[in-house]
Design a binder for these strands. Structure first.
Length: 576
RNA sequence: GCACCCAUAGCUCAGCUGGAUAGAGUGUCGCCCUCCGAAGGCGAAGGUCGUAGGUUCGAAUCCUACUGGGUGCGCCA
């Protein structure tokens, strides 16, 4: 049940009736007509801007339209009163039964309350994390993982068919470096002294991989040239790293549907095919790029390369797909990868990248736009840096990995649920401060706690009720009658609308802020029970009222549970 | 030099894709437990929405130019 769409339906009906009555011209675009909660609750429960957006095209004064529209709306089934206000708003007061209906609907629909068919089953591919398989995931990846996963769940909840995908960069030079680093650890496992030189990975996490390699091949690679072992060790090491990464993701509760290997693109003709497709559109040519203005690299010299005319699709300069030695640039397999995604029939692609990939956005969008002739949109979400703190002080680096704080460090310290929720309490494009102490603090400036606390309180009431042999019952909700109770129910009514807004804007953080508001509304009502016993959830001698109030808070429980469920967070029944 | 992101209360941030008197938390000050969890709640104070123009019934939101901060910029992925 989405109160907003229902009321908007009534507004549109009324407008149509006005057109039929000749009060409004035909053929008006109603797309801009909105129904929203007014910022100031004194203005009523709902407001519509219909009169103002239609005034100009209809050639009438906003307040005149508003007056006529309000007259028609006032007779509606869900509407108690409709008043014209300000420049032409129509403020609506809804009938008490609307809030009771919402409460009932939330309780009955449970896990499905707020679920939308907005996506209409369209296929979406969300690619996220996609960290190089050269080591464990670190904090930055954690944010990308949490964000991508929540966005995927949100889209699923909004009616899309979602695929979660991880792109393994196992085709480039960095996996050769990985192989050499593992080889050093392999020598070390054989008792040799080794030095990690320029660019090799010195992290401790490779020690076990070196040992494992020794167990597998014995001394077969000792004193052998790279040509003998590189390919084998690279595969072995990459697999080991992906094993590590999968475990890291699992510790966060992230499960991918597809791990797509970059290497699998090579030798299959897919890259060639993708580029041929661009070539057919006349977007591939041989040429020489201008040096970047202002900051010319010292070793700059003009080279002829194979270029993609990305400027035809909104990029600033054309981009090379081949290096001067004829090998592919990184961009080429990336084009092929997206070509593959498109050919798998997705209606929408979403890439979640770290902020350091900002420079990549335009060319990637250009590529997808060119490949699909603009048919398939690609949205790229950049997640900004995570700054770690401990007790207000910048956090010192991890002892285990030597160079960075790992995902595992964070999860071990504060837990997956807290990590996930906190990392979603900021917009993806804003930097995030993550204080390892504060996120575990149990106070209301910690949104995780505050929301969980509301859920725990509800569970506490339910335990008390159970002792008295009472359970929620939505069949008679007439006891839900106080403005404070309506306010809470009104907040519940916003949930389905919020899901759609968050999903269309690809902004899962909105869920966190909503849940905080909902929790706040609930805590407020709880406390009003101090002064007004009639507002307490359990009414001594009135089982019908108690059941109704239990239904109300049960509905709150449902929404909290659904909301944090989208975040992959489990609601708690008791604070500890 | 160019591109992208950001700028809102002392601090940390929301702001429902253009709506009414811009909201939370924190910090400061004052209140509220004979009551289902006070790990809470209520109230006060706090603002030229970076600056200057523009678009229109209406701008924190859209456009332009600046200022300040972050990120990136051909054979690294």
């Amino acid at each position: 049940m989405n109160v907003f769409t229902e009321i908007r339906g009534q507004v549109l009906e009324a407008l149509t009736a006005m057109q039929e009555a000749g009060e409004l011209p035909a053929g008006l675009d109603m797309g801009n007509v909105t129904v929203e909660p007014p910022r100031d609750p004194l203005h009523g429960d709902m407001a519509t801007n219909a009169a103002m957006v239609l005034a100009k095209p209809a050639g009438a004064k906003p307040r005149d339209i508003a007056g006529a529209l309000a007259g028609r709306l006032a007779g509606g089934a869900m509407i108690d009163s409709a008043e014209v206000a300000g420049p032409g708003f129509i403020n609506l007061r809804l009938a008490a039964h609307v809030w009771q209906d919402v409460t009932r609907a939330a309780l009955m629909q449970g896990n499905d309350f707020g679920r939308s068919d907005m996506g209409q089953g369209r296929k979406v591919n969300v690619e996220y994390v996609s960290a190089n398989p050269t080591g464990p995931l670190h904090v930055g990846h954690t944010r990308g993982a949490v964000f991508g996963d929540a966005l995927a769940s949100l889209l699923d909840f909004a009616g899309y068919k979602v695929t979660r995908e991880y792109y393994i960069n196992d085709g480039g030079a960095q996996v050769d470096v990985l192989a050499r680093s593992v080889y050093l650890r392999y020598l070390e496992a054989h008792g040799q002294a080794v030095a990690f030189e320029d660019g090799t990975y010195p992290g401790d996490y490779l020690i076990a991989v070196g040992v494992a390699l020794k167990t597998k091949v014995g001394d077969a690679y000792l004193d052998q040239p790279e040509s003998v072992w590189l390919t084998e060790v690279r595969d072995f090491a990459t697999q080991a790293m992906m094993g590590l990464i999968r475990e890291d993701l699992k510790s966060l509760g992230v499960e991918m549907d597809i791990f797509f290997s970059e290497k699998s693109l090579y030798g299959t003709g897919l890259i060639e095919k993708a580029l041929a497709s661009l070539d057919e559109k006349g977007l591939i040519y041989e040429g020489v790029l201008e040096p970047p203005k202002g900051k010319t690299p010292e070793d700059w010299e003009p080279r002829e390369q194979t270029l993609f005319r990305s400027t035809d699709h909104g990029d600033d300069v054309d981009r090379p797909v081949k290096k001067s030695d004829g090998g592919w640039t990184y961009f080429a397999p990336d084009i092929a990868y997206h070509y593959d995604k498109v050919s798998r029939g997705y209606d929408l692609l979403i890439d979640v990248f770290g902020a350091d990939h900002g420079g990549y956005v335009k060319r990637m969008k250009a590529a997808v736009s060119a490949l699909t002739d603009g048919r398939v949109p690609l949205d790229i979400k950049l997640t900004q840096l995570v700054k770690l703190y401990q007790n207000g002080q910048p956090f010192k680096m991890s002892k285990r990995a030597g160079t960075f704080v790992t995902l595992r460090d964070v999860v071990d310290l504060v837990g997956a649920d807290v990590t996930r929720f906190v990392m979603l309490t900021r917009k993806n494009d804003a930097p995030l401060d993550f204080d390892l102490d504060k996120v575990r603090e149990q106070s209301k400036d910690n949104p995780v706690f505050y929301v969980q606390y509301a859920h725990a309180r509800i569970c506490s009431v339910q335990r008390k009720a159970a002792e008295a042999g009472i359970a929620a019952d939505a069949s008679d909700l007439s006891a839900i009658a106080h403005p404070a109770e309506f306010a809470l129910a009104a907040k519940l009514a916003e949930w389905p609308r919020l899901v759609e807004i968050a999903a269309t804007s690809h902004e899962p953080h909105r869920v966190a802020f909503y849940l905080y508001d909902l929790a706040s509304e609930f805590h407020g009502l709880w406390n009003k029970g101090n002064a007004e016993p009639a507002l307490r959830f359990l009414q001594e001698d009135d089982p019908v009222a108690s059941k109704a109030k239990l239904a109300l808070i049960g509905a709150v429980q449902v929404v909290i549970s659904n909301g944090i469920g989208i975040y992959g967070v489990t609601p708690v029944e008791e604070m500890r």
